[in-house]
């Protein structure tokens, strides 16, 4: 705390941390300087210190709480828009301006549901609200249309790369036979190598690939560039062997889990095609969960 000193030679008051050798204004020596004690409370007293700390803490807490709650809706909106643009990217809609994302998302995503590993629909769960961490216990599925109007199911995936986590969204045809689009992202892969999985160039390789192998299980995966022996094997990123391997693993096991949850290659549950929800037009007696009137669509 700065102290005030009064110099009797020049008559000025100045501030300094402690008694200086001479007056900084006129150069008079210390015999002319006296400290001016601030009138009022002794700011170094115990009671004062405690009260001061308490008041400050309360004030700051109120201020931060106010700011946080005032901005919360905007922040949540931003996070949601980010997630939506990722899902849209897997449907091959990229490069949208922030304001258009919401509209396009609502236009393309028809309905969603959350499944358990053995295919039961989890009531009351919103697919969009399922965090990436929870994938593996809960399986959110988005029934939607791609940019060109084809029907698709978007499957969120979770995996592990070289340095950190990976996640992605793969859009497949409703019968789970073909990939329509993909989006991958990472927490902390190497810039210029593993980070390239985020580029459209890598993701667009997945379009049109078959998902299932000859034995009916998921065979879609990522292999080293140049060594792919089947349509289901996508080229990895050159120089990012382990990140590519991570993506391959994620896609292979992740989609298999969805296939199992959806009951083999014919999906069941509320995301069935043909008699699909939204298509029954509110038919009487339709008892599928998504026809119960309550919208399960994400905000």
């Amino acid at each position: 705390m700065a102290k005030k000193f009064y110099c009797s030679q020049c008559g000025q008051t100045f501030e300094a941390a402690s008694m200086p050798d001479k007056c900084p204004i006129c150069g008079a020596d210390t015999s002319h300087l006296t400290e001016v004690k601030s009138k009022g409370i002794n700011t170094n007293g115990n009671i004062y210190t405690i009260c001061y700390a308490a008041v400050m803490v309360i004030l700051v807490a109120f201020l931060l709480a106010f700011v946080s709650s005032a901005l919360k809706s905007k922040q949540d909106a931003n996070v949601a828009i980010d997630k939506k643009s990722q899902i849209l990217a897997s449907l091959n809609v990229r490069g949208l301006a922030k304001s258009e994302v919401e509209g396009k998302y609502n236009e393309l995503i028809q309905e969603t549901c959350v499944l358990t590993p053995d295919g039961q629909v989890l009531e009351g769960e919103d697919a969009f609200g399922v965090d990436t961490k929870e994938i593996g216990e809960k399986f959110p599925v988005y029934r939607s249309k791609t940019a060109d109007g084809a029907d698709a199911l978007v499957l969120p995936l979770k995996g592990r790369g070289l340095w950190g986590g990976l996640w992605g969204y793969v859009a497949v045809t409703p019968d789970l036979q073909k990939v329509l689009g993909a989006y991958f992202d990472h927490e902390s892969e190497t810039a210029g190598l593993g980070a390239l999985i985020k580029e459209a160039k890598f993701q667009e390789q997945f379009i049109g690939r078959p998902v299932l192998g000859e034995d009916g299980n998921v065979a879609l995966t990522v292999v080293k560039k140049g060594s792919s022996t089947a349509e289901t094997e996508v080229d990895g990123v050159t120089g990012a062997t382990l990140t590519s391997k991570g993506v391959g693993e994620m896609v292979l096991t992740g989609i298999q889990q969805y296939v199992n949850a959806l009951g083999g290659s014919k999906p069941s549950g509320c995301c069935q095609k043909a008699e699909g929800c939204g298509g029954c037009g509110g038919k009487e007696g339709c008892d599928k969960p998504c026809c119960q009137g309550e919208s399960e669509q994400a905000e």
Binding site: T190, G192, L193, T238, G239, A240, T241
Partner: peptide, 8 residues
């Protein structure tokens, strides 16, 4: 330049 040194 990792791709010139080991990756490729």
């Amino acid at each position: 330049y990792p791709s010139s040194m080991t990756g490729d």
